[in-house]
Amino acid sequence: MTGAARPEEGVLVEARHVTRILDLAVPVRLVHDIELKVESGEFVTITGPSGSGKSSLLYLLGLLDVPSEGEVLIGGKTTAGLSSNELAALRLSRLGFVFQFHFLLPEFSVLHNVMLPMQRLGRLSERELTERGMALLDRLGIADQAEKMPDQLSGGQRQRVAIARSLGNDPHIILADEPTGNLDTKNSEVVRDIFRRLAEEEGRTIIAVTHEPAFAEAAMRNVHLVDGEIVSDTRHPD
């Protein structure tokens, strides 16, 4: 019902010599010469001390930001030189974002929030949209909250709504920026499990920035960043 992503083989997200320099009065180097390949179905966490550039790297991989040098490839195709509209179209259909803060639109019900990206894509009828939205909420165990407004929900529930929203257009790649950063231990555990299931059961590719060791351990692979450069890239033996 939730439409498990068709597994796509090979390298899904790739960074080639990616450098990002903020062009301020004193230029700030966020990340430097990043080489990274993420295969389809991998659950990767990016860790590092604060200011190490892990969020910046995530935004670059998620096409929210463009590199100063180098290129990001999605599904083997380069995104260098794409217009902002083409990048938006890629984000809409192939990427899903989850942030530390849930970023739900406060004027819309939980269900409507989940439906927004699907409505923008415009491939489904209104009835199908509602059904799919409900199915996603059900998958994340919050179908009973569908008609509530975001501010009536607990932090953990809101984050699950945000995850449901990111899955709306059935993207192969989920990017998460400290998704458990605002949650207590119990809710963190729930969210962590959701991500693991999304990778293991549905074959989605997950790239998550975190500073929680427990979260990093749940992943298959861990990339450690210091001062904008990759210092270690370890795979857990399952």
Binding site: G62, L64, S84, N85, A88, A89, L90, R91, L92, S93, L95, F97, F99, F103, L105, L116, P117, R120, L121, R165, N169
Partner: peptide
């Protein structure tokens, strides 16, 4: 903030 999240979802500038 809402504008930013809409853009990250894939809403275009237009």
């Amino acid at each position: 903030r809402d504008i930013a999240i809409l853009m990250s979802m894939g809403f275009r500038e237009a």
